[in-house]
């Protein structure tokens, strides 16, 4: 029995390896890389990343069905307000397949920052988004300075200090 069990475990291990091999295909946007430009429809006309050149841009990918995204909205409002004068621009890219779901969400969770819609998912694919929400802090030079996945109360300080250091960077 123990021999059989060992053989089976061996088989299971091989199967697990195959799984992990698959995860190799995924591309993740790394620090120091030029952030891919995008042009999307927003709540107030067209939104293009290149138009924000010279600002620090906080790009957030969110969905109406994601709980932590809901929590991040008041915080992003606060950040936009607090650091606007220093040159922060928050762009929240919604990735719902039906933009209608996003508009319902926005009615309940007002956004005082730029919101754009990408129902096809091309932008999150270029950015290698791994989960909801995902955020990328892009420096004044257009390069990615830090990336973050998920949102919860305990990470607010870390995120804010990342924004601050991006704003202060030369």
């Amino acid at each position: 029995m123990s021999l059989i069990r060992r053989k089976i475990l061996h088989g299971a291990t091989v199967a697990l390896m195959l799984f992990m091999g698959n995860s190799n295909d995924l591309f993740a946007l790394e620090k120091g890389v030029k952030a891919p430009d995008f042009q999307l429809t927003g709540t107030q006309g067209s939104v293009r990343l290149a138009d924000a050149a010279g600002s620090v841009v906080y790009v957030d990918f969110w969905a109406s069905w994601c709980g932590p995204c809901r929590q991040s909205f008041p915080w992003m409002n606060e950040m936009q307000e607090k650091y606007r004068a220093k040159g922060l621009k928050v762009i929240a890219v919604n990735v719902d397949a039906k933009s209608e779901d996003a508009r319902k969400f926005l009615a309940q969770n007002p956004a005082k920052f730029t919101v754009a819609f990408d129902s096809k998912g091309a932008t999150p694919a270029h950015y290698g988004v791994k989960g909801m929400p995902s955020s990328f802090i892009i420096g004044r030079d257009g390069k990615v300075m830090s990336t973050h996945l998920g949102f919860n109360a305990s990470e607010k300080e870390k995120l804010e200090s990342d924004i601050k250091s991006a704003l202060e960077a030369k």
């Binding site: 993740a28 790394e30 791994k130 989960g131 995902s134 973050h148 998920g150």
Partner: peptide, 8 residues
């Protein structure tokens, strides 16, 4: 990955 995963 270098970016953390959020299982919150």
């Amino acid at each position: 990955s270098h970016s953390a995963f959020a299982e919150s």
